[in-house]
């Protein structure tokens, strides 16, 4: 595992086709930033603090310690904004270690809105929320994914982080209509875009952050770019640094 900055581990997610990097907030100590981050900040590269563990879609009480950590990381890296997911990570005393989908019901939206507002009160910068890749769906959805996100934005004034790989995943795995999704979300609230690689397995798409970006994902990126020029585009790559050709392919779509 290596990259141009000599870092190992998942503290960094990748590429800044749109001129930004992300740091995974849970893996950073605000008082002991890696030198590479200071170098990047010195060069004026915006660093977004990206969180994965707030469980904003969870019905259990918000963990204010985690919110405070994200806030501290945001301050330490001078982040213009922070981001998290529309997801929950555990329940009933168990932690899944990953992002799980929330039911797209009005009741679940109310809980999410309440948690997001509580987090926003404690964060020093705006919050962008991301659509996740799901392998399963709740049985009782009342809203499309796009409407769910649109109402979330309307009620919390949050920004959106659109992950086009996750959108592709949900098109394959749970039947989300990507064009309708892009029609329904308020693109004027788009903060930036995630692109990522994955693998097909037994008819399902798995978001791995370790494999090549699929052509269908680049097609969705193009479809999004045709609607609005994204303020930033970032390739999530947790393992090996991607080949230059892969970055060039993303840049070509964004700059087309």
């Amino acid at each position: 595992m290596s990259n141009p900055w000599g870092l190992s581990g998942p503290a960094f997610l990748w590429l800044y086709a749109g001129g930004l990097v992300e740091v995974l907030a849970e893996n950073v100590r605000p008082g002991a930033l890696p030198e590479s981050l200071r170098v990047l900040r010195g060069r004026g590269v915006p660093v977004v603090a990206h969180a994965v563990s707030l469980s904003l879609g969870g019905a259990e009480a918000l963990d204010h310690t985690r919110v405070a950590h994200l806030a501290a990381v945001a301050e330490a890296v001078d982040a213009p904004l922070v981001s998290e997911h529309v997801a929950f990570t555990g329940a009933g005393g168990l932690d899944s270690g990953h992002l799980l989908p929330v039911p797209r019901t009005r009741a679940a939206l109310d809980v999410l809105v309440s948690n997001v507002r509580a987090a926003q009160r404690e964060l020093p910068v705006p919050l962008a929320l991301e659509n996740i890749a799901a392998l399963l769906d709740w049985p009782d959805g009342e809203l499309t994914e796009g409407r769910f996100l649109a109402e979330l934005v309307e009620r919390t004034d949050c920004h959106l982080l659109v992950d086009v790989a996750n959108l592709h995943a949900n098109a394959v795995n749970i039947g989300t209509d990507p064009a309708r999704f892009l029609d329904e979300i308020p693109l004027e609230r788009l903060a930036y875009v995630h692109v990522a690689g994955g693998v097909n397995h037994d008819g399902l798409y798995h978001d791995t952050h370790a494999h090549a970006v699929h052509p269908e994902v680049l097609d969705l990126l193009a479809e999004l770019c045709a609607r609005v020029p994204p303020p930033g585009v970032l390739l999530e790559r947790d393992d090996d640094h991607p080949p230059d050709a892969e970055l060039a392919a993303i840049r070509a779509v964004v700059e087309a």
Binding site: G58, A59, E60, F88, G90, A91, G92, G93, L94, S96, L100, P103, A107, A108, V111, L136, D137, W138, P139, D140
Partner: peptide, 23 residues
């Protein structure tokens, strides 16, 4: 919602029964 999420998580992590309506 907490109860339903806990039920799903038990099914995913602790061998609990598949909650009604899930594949």
């Amino acid at each position: 919602l907490a109860a339903r999420q806990a039920e799903l998580v038990r099914a995913l992590l602790a061998g609990g029964p598949v909650p009604p309506g899930f594949d």
